[in-house]
Design a protein around this nucleic acid. Sequence first.
DNA 1: GTCTATACGGTGATAGAC
DNA 2: GTCTATCACCGTATAGAC
Lengths: 218, 218
Amino acid sequence: MNRLKSSKYVDDAEEERSPETVILEAAKKVFIRKGYDGARMQEIADEAGMNKSLLHYYFRSKEQLFNKIFREMLMFVWPKVEATIFRESSDIRHVVKSLIQTYTLLVRQRPYVFMFILEEIGRHPERIQQLKSLIDDWGVKPQHIIKSIDKKLKTKHIHHIDARELIINIISLCVFPMIAQPVAMLFLWPDRKEFEKFMQRRSEHVYMAMCNILKIKS
Amino acid sequence: MNRLKSSKYVDDAEEERSPETVILEAAKKVFIRKGYDGARMQEIADEAGMNKSLLHYYFRSKEQLFNKIFREMLMFVWPKVEATIFRESSDIRHVVKSLIQTYTLLVRQRPYVFMFILEEIGRHPERIQQLKSLIDDWGVKPQHIIKSIDKKLKTKHIHHIDARELIINIISLCVFPMIAQPVAMLFLWPDRKEFEKFMQRRSEHVYMAMCNILKIKS
DNA sequence: GTCTATACGGTGATAGAC
DNA sequence: GTCTATCACCGTATAGAC
């Protein structure tokens, strides 16, 4: 265990990671596990394998460290959703399908993001400001989202439904099962494998459900 | 402001409330607002208008005080849901309708319960045990729930769907919009009144959606 | 940049007077 | 039962040596 490590080039395939990166990754893990209030700077330091005071050296305070991670999470979610909603297709089926695929993918890639964001905004309502200013920076107008979808819903042979309702239905069906996983597994999927199978097929099932709601052929 | 209050009979219409009750109500408010980790015994004492050490006198510890409230929340939700699922009706439409009404009512009566339960179980996974033992005490077998619904789904002219999927779809559509309220209001219902109107009609809309999913007439 | 030591305000919980 | 005082510890943050 006395391998030379003085070289800047690490011998493992592992790439060189800056202390900032190591801290951010450790902090992310701990904040996701414990939430802002439950997280401890000491635990983050342990997770990062470094001294507690270094966290303050690089990020000044717990709040600032948290905000970096919170912002990163928001930016991970939003662009993909936005891109889907404003997607260049006049066919509502395509929009519905990509919305569903986007959300189910996000949920499978980062099962914790939605719960984390909703929790932290609920516990610390000031944080809604971060999301607000992020949206402003992006130049997105919520009304545009609604109008964009609404226009596409004005097609013949489609059951009339409010655009906002359509959107919240899709998000509910895709995101909630993962949020409710611990309780859902107790009541409905006592076998973990069964739950995973269910989540794998979620995208198709939600699409079929939405087609039925809109009374269109899949 | 020097009204005599020495009498046991309070002059207002307000009824006599035991210290235990006052503490529990205050604690509930604070725990809902801040979560277990964010809540402070001092804040609960302030909210209850009494000395901090009285909280320990009546409930010994923060954990025990919390558990009382957590258990109360679980017992508020579960019996109503269970009663609906095992309800004496062979018609799946009745079961679906009462499930939807039960959940939308719960969500409107206590907008915080579901988020609170899911949050606290997620942050402190040990607490799933409380739910487990509560279910055991009740003598409920999850498989029975599924089978009960599944049997009712074996009717002609109904689109085949897995019972567990049906249940999670209903809960998702009813519960998630309230859980996501802060973010949903930012993107989709910038006007609070509009959101309330939406939630008022939620029960009917979800019922219509479920009828379409099952391909039955409402 | 990284460490040790420490300041400083909480935070849950208890002892003991009344 | 209710209060004050206080304990023992924790948690963020900083000072200062190296």
